[in-house]
């Protein structure tokens, strides 16, 4: 029958598609957050070459990108990630807690709290800085449209929020209610809350919306590189947060796929001289001191504080600011 034929053709295609996968050389999947697309595109090529030189094995690396929490959620629900390279430790903690795919002490397994690169949060404005934005407190002035994603779903947005929070605490000498007021005014100036950092950047850069983009430093440099200084300008605030995007092997998945060796080497290669150079070329701040010195000219000096200066832990920061009914929700509920 015609329909049975269709059915078998469909099933056949399906089987072929799947067996292709099984017959291929080993593949690992890197589940990452939004702004790292270009970084890992370059890094993967380099690592594939390195691995082939070292072992003779030709491997393939697949990528998945999205908001950091969305990606963590996907891993928890079973995306077969071999490594996770996310925006903040809280999201990887969530994987450990909710799925048991990795041990609780994952962050101690690699140097620098498992962050092979760091970055910070800066302000990107239009060329000539028409709105005269110099620092965080310019963002709460009336009539300024601030672009930042939704901290509920975007890791980058949480860093943005905490950077502003740190500034406000310093400005008001640790007065939390003043700091809350400051953030309420800042978010009142945000006309769009995209679900990921990329969405915000696109709206600011491509769609021409907003006066200032609160952005990952690397994303801001990328925009400058792609579109030129005649379109955008980076403003370094008086103080910002040191962002530490962590990486980890997803143990139970690599055990299952038989890819522990590749996954481990992949992440270690990020810390190697070559890896650090790629990292720096993509405007992430390298953790290796020597590479950092070499590329120092490229990164402006910023007064940086860490997550531990504004919260005991990511868990606590999440609880106070971003959980349902937390400070971020209150900003909107009582407006």
């Amino acid at each position: 029958m015609k329909f049975n034929m269709w059915l078998s053709v469909g099933l056949l295609m399906f089987i072929v598609a799947n067996s292709n996968q099984a017959l291929a050389d080993r593949t690992i999947l890197n589940v990452s957050y939004d702004p790292t697309r270009e970084l890992y595109q370059a890094f993967n090529q380099e690592f594939i070459r390195y691995w082939q030189d070292k072992t003779g094995e030709k491997i393939a690396i697949r990528q998945s990108h999205g908001g950091s929490s969305k990606q963590a959620r996907a891993i928890i629900d079973g995306v077969p990630a071999d490594v996770a390279t996310l925006a903040l430790a809280y999201d990887i903690d969530a994987i450990s807690e909710r799925s048991g795919l990795i041990p609780a002490g994952w962050q101690q397994r690699l140097p620098n709290n498992s962050s092979p690169y760091t970055s910070t949060i800066v302000l990107l404005v239009r060329a000539g800085n028409p709105k005269k934005i110099k620092d965080w407190d310019d963002l709460i002035k009336p009539g300024i449209a601030v672009m930042t994603p939704n901290p509920k779903t975007s890791g980058g947005a949480r860093w943005n929020y905490l950077a502003a929070w740190g500034f406000a605490l310093k400005k008001y000498n640790g007065d939390e209610s003043e700091a809350r007021h400051f953030l309420a005014r800042l978010y009142k100036n945000a006309p769009i809350l995209d679900s990921g950092a990329r969405g915000s950047a696109i709206n600011f850069i491509q769609r021409g919306i907003g006066d200032v983009l609160i952005s990952w430093e690397n994303e801001a440099f990328l925009a400058l590189k792609e579109y030129g200084p005649e379109k955008f300008e980076i403003i370094i605030p008086s103080i910002s947060i040191l962002t530490e995007p962590p990486v980890t092997v997803i143990d139970k998945n690599t055990d299952k796929h038989g890819t522990q060796d590749i996954a481990q080497a992949y992440l270690e290669y990020l810390y190697s001289k070559k890896g650090q150079e790629i990292v720096a070329r993509h405007f992430y701040r390298p953790s290796d001191a020597e590479t950092a010195r070499e590329y120092a000219h490229q990164f402006p000096e910023i007064n940086l504080f860490t997550i531990n200066d504004v919260a005991d832990s990511w868990q606590q920061a999440q609880q106070i600011h971003f959980s349902d009914g937390g400070l971020f929700d209150k900003i909107y509920e009582y407006q």
Partner: peptide, 27 residues
């Protein structure tokens, strides 16, 4: 809708998006 809505809580956030948002908060 998600491309054209501003996704501002209380203003331009649709219910299906809220379901996704809750999921991404592990809720």
């Amino acid at each position: 809708v998600i491309f054209i809505a501003g996704n501002i809580p209380m203003v331009s956030e649709i219910t299906p998006l809220l379901i996704i948002t809750k999921l991404e908060q592990y809720d």
